[in-house]
Computed example of a mutant assay.
Amino acid sequence: MGITVQNITGNTAMVIWPKMASCADSFYSVMYHPNWNSMLSSYSRNSFQKEERVPTSRSSFVVENLTPLTTYIVCVTCQSANPSSDQCRVFNTLEQDLASVSNTKKELALGIWLTSSVLLLIIAAALLYGCLHLLCRRRRERLQGQDRTSEQDHKKVQTNSMARTSEKLGRQSQQTPYTEEKHPGAIQLATIIENPAVCKEPIMPTSKSQERVPTTGRCSAIN
């Protein structure tokens, strides 16, 4: 059949085969197995460790995840047929090169770094959220305390104002009767002075001498 294996490394190998005109199936079966000496001579499909399906439009396939320094057997058949000896090829993988080892380590280190970065970001976000929540709660409590203090001060001011007002009213109520008792006759005297017409009586003229004769009354008695 002319199967060839090229570009062999410690972990990969490219399998190439010619197109099979007699294969009317929709895909090829690429089967491979390590330590081919342990396989039966019949090349049964169940004896292969791995099997890959490749569309019939392709004539090559890269086998991956191989073990370095290991002997493999690879076979290519139609969709469901058992392979024959002319459809198989034996090859040996190489020692794993330093470049692939370095790339593997780099990929591992990059994965660890990315995972650690994501975890740190999550932890930082959680801490930031907790701090903001705590600050908001303290600020709310502080504002509530200020409102309560201002309300208490306002109540104290109102209480003091009412107390002062009541005290002034009490003082005025105490001073008013004292003034009236101190000068009881002053009010009556002032009333009499303000109304002098009470003391004056009309002068009756006589017909003979036209002299004015004052009529004596209560004014003389008052004087």
Score class of each variant (00 low, 15 high):
R212A: 04
Q188T: 15
E180S: 15
Q175P: 01
T179P: 02
A186V: 11
P202V: 08
S207D: 14
I222G: 03
Q188M: 08
S166A: 03
P184N: 08
I193S: 03
P214V: 15
A190W: 01
K168Y: 06
P205S: 02
E194Y: 00
A221L: 15
L189Y: 05
Q175H: 04
P205G: 04
K200G: 06
P177A: 01
A186I: 03
E180F: 10
S166W: 00
P214N: 08
G170Q: 01
P205K: 10
S209F: 04
L169Y: 05
S220V: 15
T215E: 09
C199I: 07
A221E: 06
Q174P: 00
N195F: 05
T215I: 12
T179S: 11
R212K: 09
E181H: 10
N195P: 01
I193F: 05
E180T: 02
C199H: 08
S209L: 06
E167A: 11
L189A: 12
A221S: 13
Q175D: 13
L189I: 06
E181R: 14
E211Y: 06
I192E: 00
I203G: 02
A186Y: 07
R171M: 04
C219G: 10
I193P: 00
P196K: 02
E167R: 07
T179R: 14
Q172R: 11
A197D: 15
T176L: 15
K200R: 15
I193K: 03
H183S: 05
S209D: 12
